[in-house]
Each structure stands twice: as structure tokens, then as C-alpha cells.
């Protein structure tokens, strides 16, 4: 390393959300309880904190509140949007 290079450590950003996953910035390696590792090369990975994800430790939005008889949707009709995939 050249002597004048900054030595400030490169810190990963980890963002907490109020209702769901922890957002980890940067490609990551997650060590699972069985000792196996899982790799995510996304720029940001959402890690499940509610333990309900069927893709644990990756968030699959299973933390969302589930309701019956939806009549109060802001604008929806209770139809889903298919897999809009954006």
C-alpha cells in the first residue's frame, strides 16, 4: 500500500427497518446455524428477522401482516398484481 493511502476502514452499512428485514450493503457471506455458508452477491441483501421466511435467512416479505376480507385497500380490489416483477 502506498504510504499516503487513507487508512480509514471500509465499513459495511447495515440498515435496520421498522417492520421487516435488516438491509446489509455489499456482497455478503452468511454463516448458517448448521455451519454452512450462503453467499449473496447483491448490492443490498435483506436478511429475515421475523423467522417466517421460507427462504431464510433471506427475506421473502413473509413478515407482512396477513388479513382476510380486504375491503380497505387504498386502491386495490383484493386482486393481486400477479408477479409484476420489477
Amino acid at each position: 500500500m502506498p504510504p499516503d493511502m487513507p487508512t480509514e476502514p471500509i465499513r459495511r452499512r447495515i440498515a435496520l427497518t421498522d417492520d421487516g428485514p435488516i438491509l446489509v450493503h455489499g456482497p455478503i457471506e452468511v454463516v448458517l446455524t448448521d455451519g454452512k455458508t450462503m453467499i449473496s452477491d447483491r448490492a443490498v441483501t435483506a436478511l429475515c428477522t421475523c423467522l417466517r421466511s421460507s427462504r431464510y435467512p433471506i427475506c421473502d416479505t413473509s413478515h407482512r401482516r396477513r388479513v382476510r376480507n380486504v375491503t380497505a385497500r387504498g386502491s386495490g380490489s383484493g386482486m393481486d398484481r400477479g408477479g409484476r416483477g420489477c
Binding site: 407482512r64 401482516r65 388479513v67 382476510r68 380486504v70 387504498g74 400477479g82
Partner: peptide, 27 residues
């Protein structure tokens, strides 16, 4: 054909609820 309004939080809140009895294409 839409209701309009300015309450973004309410619209997003409605999208974040997962209806268990919805009848959509993916269901």
C-alpha cells in the same frame, strides 16, 4: 377512474398488507 388523493403512506400501507383470501392470477 381512480380515487386520487395525496396520502402516500395510506396507499403504501394498503399494498403492504397480504390478503390471504385474494383471488388473483398468481393465486
Amino acid at each position: 377512474d381512480v380515487a386520487g388523493g395525496t396520502d402516500v403512506a395510506a396507499e403504501i400501507g394498503a399494498l403492504l398488507v397480504e390478503p390471504v383470501d385474494a383471488a388473483g392470477v398468481s393465486h
